[in-house]
Design a protein around this nucleic acid. Structure first.
Lengths: 259, 259
DNA sequence: CGATGTGTTGACCGGGTTCAAACAATGTGG
DNA sequence: CCACATTGTTTGAACCCGGTCAACACATCG
């Protein structure tokens, strides 16, 4: 993995359970992303950058000028309140854009931090805009990326506001696995490069609660811990996660719906 | 103004400690917005629409084709999970755009509902893109709006994950008042066109908790209920709300920070 | 080896939910 | 005009999920 030169593994990884074929990832998982990256490569002067776990692509308050696209690896986004509270606000996988928040007021509003060795493609925003004049597909790409980010943020909110702690963790793992699957990466054996504290921060709960939730998920065989360490885990069936969320919606502190 | 290189001054994000004089809204509150609306008017064929409280501008699942800009009134955005949970995901005031979430996959992902009599300007997305070729300022406008929406969503997340129920309500009222102030509307006497249940849904708590929180805020004289009804209230000093949030950060179930 | 960072688990506590009752505002029809 | 229903708000009391505090189990690394 992490072979930076060789882009898509060209893998045609068919989803695990044949059941959910329709909702599943297309056979050509990651094809769109590969295309998008190619388009960028062909129309823009790109600055490629290799980074390691913990490296920062940009920081909150820094002058905005560039947008960034993940070529490999995973990044986390961290925002801060005026009084210094910090918040893991999201994750960006291959093909995702970073830095949109800087457009409005000329400064980035958050940190973007690599979670493992990764490659990021950067280019000036104004250069991008110029290129968009000649390549409308490029503009479509940008808008789709922003649109998806908005939608994703709302899904986050929904999960946060309507799910119990256990369900939230399950839903997070589902999201994570699906993000990987959509890019043609394996999901049956994943390594979270996050501490429990970070997961908890993102999900609005304490690390102990995350730990307990994951233990419970493992007990119910919705996930399984790999041999070595509790950081890497297996997700035999993504639908099992979905069902767990659904199940925990019925019984408990349930419906925070209107009426 | 609105040039790509020199973005908006942005009212927000000034050091916390500063007394609210300098963070206050410019005398020309709403000037940017007025300019933006004018630009739209001058460069696009716009369909103006008058709507009443409860009217829907677009619905989740509906085919995407138009973007919308609030000209007057306030709109709420409601998203749904696959299993039908509904979630108030945000509010849009004068000058705010709506419908970005539809760009990525060709269908709106949420409902946009008027909260009172309002006017909304709508236009086709493809028409907008064409106009952007000749009027780059227009494109800058669009991007700034999307950028702000992303930033705002993250602020929401931050508030949700790190604040107690009381502080969350206070922070919500601060946000609401500032949104009005930034558009030159009065903030000392505002009418929430939301039920407690809706506020609670947005903030991830039950209506009873919202009610109790507001009672407490009134008891501490951070807000005051107007004579008639508990729906309209006065906010004598926005900074008092900020201070309340700060205060409740110290004592209680406080820091959900990392480490 | 100890040191440090991370994860797990238990016991206790408290903030927020749940359930319930009463009240306020508004509207409807006789 | 009042009786009455409806919808929204407030407040109390009991309960419980998730936070807090603490002890321990493992890693990895010097």
């Amino acid at each position: 993995m992490l072979s930076i030169a060789a882009p898509t593994p060209a893998v045609v990884r068919v989803p695990h359970t044949a059941r959910h074929v329709d909702r599943a990832v297309p056979q050509t998982a990651g094809a769109h992303i590969a295309e998008a990256l190619k388009l960028l490569q062909d129309t823009l002067p790109i600055q490629r950058r290799l980074v390691h776990a913990g490296d920062t692509i940009y920081q909150a308050g820094e002058r905005f000028g560039c947008l960034h696209v993940v070529h490999s690896g995973i990044f986390k986004i961290i925002t801060y309140s005026a009084d210094g509270r910090e918040q893991v606000a999201g994750f960006h996988f291959k093909g995702d854009w970073m830095g949109f928040d800087g457009i409005a007021n000329g400064r980035y509003g958050c940190d973007a931090v690599a979670m493992d060795t990764a490659e990021v493609w950067s280019f000036r925003y104004d250069t991008l805009l110029q290129a968009c004049v000649e390549h409308p597909e490029l503009l479509a790409l940008v808008h789709a990326a922003m649109s998806r980010e908005i939608t994703r943020d709302r899904d986050s909110l929904l999960s946060l506001c309507t799910l119990s702690a256990d369900a939230r963790v399950a839903d997070f793992l589902r999201y994570w696995a699906e993000s990987l699957a959509a890019r043609g990466l394996r999901t049956d054996q994943i390594t979270l490069r996050l501490t429990r504290a970070e997961i908890g921060n993102y999900l609005g709960m304490k690390l102990e609660t995350v730990s307990r939730a994951m233990s419970r998920l493992a007990r119910e065989k919705v996930i399984r811990f790999a041999e070595r360490g509790r950081r890497e885990l297996q997700i035999p069936d993504i639908d099992a996660l979905r069902e767990f969320v659904q199940r925990s919606l019925g019984a408990p502190a349930a419906s925070r719906t209107l009426q």
